[in-house]
Amino acid sequence: MALLEVEDLKKYFIQGDLVDRLLRRVRTVKAVDGVTFKLGKGETLALVGESGSGKTTTGKLVLRLLEPTGGRIVFDGVDITRMKEGELRKLRPRMQMIYQDPYASLNPRMEVGRAIAEPLVVHGRASWSEARREALEMLERVGLTPAKDFYRRRPIQLSGGQRQRVVIARAMILKPNLLVADEPVSMIDVSMRTSILKLLLDFKKEYNMSMIMITHDLAVARLVAERVAVMYLGKIVEMGPTEDILHNPSHPYTEALIAAAPTIVPRARKPRLRIKGEIADPSRIPSGCRFHPRCPYSDSSKCIEKEPQLRGDSRIVACHYPLTR
């Protein structure tokens, strides 16, 4: 059974103040515009796309850190779409989030050890002295040793990688079933990225945790995720098993992302597809297929007029003329 089921999830932001409203200049930003997926227990799904694709908003909606405009979120059999915050709070320890900027996600004035221990106390799972002991074990576990020394430090006294380890420790001390990781390594020094990813994978295995990895980097997605969902302007345009998608993309946008990924391999056999321009403003989504203005294959009126629907079973794609090989 799936741990998480998301159905036709939508998030629209209304932009504009009173004056804009009077002048009828209000814009609706469709950040997430109908996203559907399932996540199995112990499975990792990568949400991949450029900034403005709606991947981070999707991650926050799933955890109900944002109020959805429409759709349904079912977590472990319970519909949490409209659940009240008080009730949700009891579920929150089971679903955790890690952010891109580890410094911003920590209270700058709090000792990091205390920050790790506190969730246990807040949720009544331990007394302060027990929580302290568990936090010390956790520090050890995430490689911040000597733990006693690190316990007392403030976030500013740590490196970026160490801070992200603290954030991971704080989320993992609650032993969650679901983790949403939003670009967890994009602000981390390159030499420490894989060790952070490995840490996440170790926890995933240990807790049989499901994970949503939000990333712009296909190579990172490949290292951690069994499945990939490629997002464009608030919609999933292609989804399927990671290796399958990377070797055999169906959507031109997926292929363009693969072609754009830099590689260290000399004379790598990259796809040649190059696309122009940049992702559109999500308050002015193009008609028909939302990718058509950038798509080198869109020469038919069909792409401009009719929105393609997601089709397929294990491999799904939303394109009128999917690539075949």
Partner: peptide
């Protein structure tokens, strides 16, 4: 260091490995 940096950089066109460099700069 160069060797470790190359090995640890995630890359789509290489075999999938999770090579990690211990420690911090």
């Amino acid at each position: 260091y160069t060797e470790a940096l190359i090995k640890s950089t995630p890359d789509l066109w290489r075999e999938k490995t999770l090579y990690t460099i211990p420690g911090n700069p």
